[in-house]
Computed example of a mutant assay.
Amino acid sequence: MLFAEFSDVADEQDADAVLSLLGDEYVREILAAASREPHSASDLSEVCDASLSTVYRRVDDLLEHDLLVESTRIDADGTHVSVYETAVEGFHVGLADGELRLDLDLLDDPAQRFAQIWEGIKNS
Rank of each mutant, 00 (worst) to 15 (best):
R101H: 12
L63V: 13
P38F: 08
E25G: 02
G98L: 02
E89R: 11
R101Y: 10
D97S: 07
D109Y: 04
V81L: 13
R113W: 03
A41N: 04
A76Q: 15
M1F: 03
H65F: 08
D66I: 01
E46M: 01
F91S: 09
R73L: 14
L68E: 04
A4V: 11
E5A: 09
L63P: 03
S71L: 03
D14K: 15
S40C: 05
D105G: 02
D103C: 00
I117K: 06
G120E: 09
V47Y: 00
D60Y: 12
L107Q: 13
A17S: 14
E64Q: 07
S42E: 14
G78L: 06
G120K: 05
L22W: 05
S53D: 12
E37M: 13
Y26F: 06
R101N: 12
W118N: 09
G94L: 07
A115F: 00
E99D: 08
D60K: 14
S45Y: 04
A76N: 12
I30H: 02
L67S: 03
D43N: 10
F3W: 00
T79S: 15
A50Q: 04
L100K: 13
C48L: 06
V59L: 10
P110S: 12
Y84L: 04
R28N: 08
D61M: 08
E25K: 06
V88M: 00
A111M: 04
D108V: 01
D109R: 11
Q116D: 07
H80I: 05
R36G: 04
D60C: 04
A10G: 03
S51L: 03
H80V: 08
Y84V: 01
L19K: 00
D16G: 07
A111F: 00
S35W: 08
R58N: 11
A41L: 01
L104N: 06
W118K: 12
